[in-house]
Design a protein around this nucleic acid. Structure first.
Length: 146
DNA sequence: AGGATGACATTAC
DNA sequence: GGTAATGCCATCC
């Protein structure tokens, strides 16, 4: 039940810690790997400020680092030599300082075969907990009534 | 129950 | 190359 979110969070974090230095995944990538939820759900997990994980390796689909954390993230990118390019003009004054974009073509993580196995395992475990958590899904459900 | 919200994504100008 | 409008999916009022 409520466990559902905890399991989802664990799965997301399990994927994030596998991303190697200088590589990144988008929120959507992770949702796709898990085959559960969507980008916003992944974002929701990350927003809880999980500790001890490379949060800066999870970015938006357009290459921007996590909202409001760009300054911090860029430091990590420089340290890891993550393919990044400086964006010329500051977009807008409405909050987005942006100034850096990750080059997703170069920086997106492509899991090796053995890493894909690990990802599959995470996905399977999540699927299991979700299924075992909602027995109603398999319940025949009695008469719907007239 | 219905609507607002969010570390998002895609499509259309 | 940008922004603007829509769609999404789960959570939380």
């Amino acid at each position: 039940m409520r466990q559902r979110t905890a399991d989802y969070e664990e799965a997301v974090l399990g994927v994030v810690v596998l991303i190697p230095p200088a590589k990144v995944l988008t929120y959507g990538d992770i949702a796709e790997i898990l085959e559960q939820g969507g980008p916003r759900q992944v974002g929701a997990v990350m927003s809880r400020g999980p500790s001890g994980i490379p949060w800066w390796r999870v970015i938006r689909a357009d290459g921007r680092p996590p909202y409001r954390l760009e300054g911090l993230a860029v430091g990590h990118y420089r340290q890891e030599s993550t393919p990044m390019r400086r964006v010329p003009a500051p977009p807008s004054r409405t909050g987005e300082p942006a100034g850096y974009l990750l080059d997703l073509r170069l920086a997106r993580w492509n899991p090796l075969p053995h890493e894909q196995d690990t990802l599959r395992e995470i996905r399977r475990r999540l699927g299991r907990s979700l299924a075992g958590d909602c027995p109603e899904l398999s319940e025949p459900d009695d008469g719907v009534d007239p």
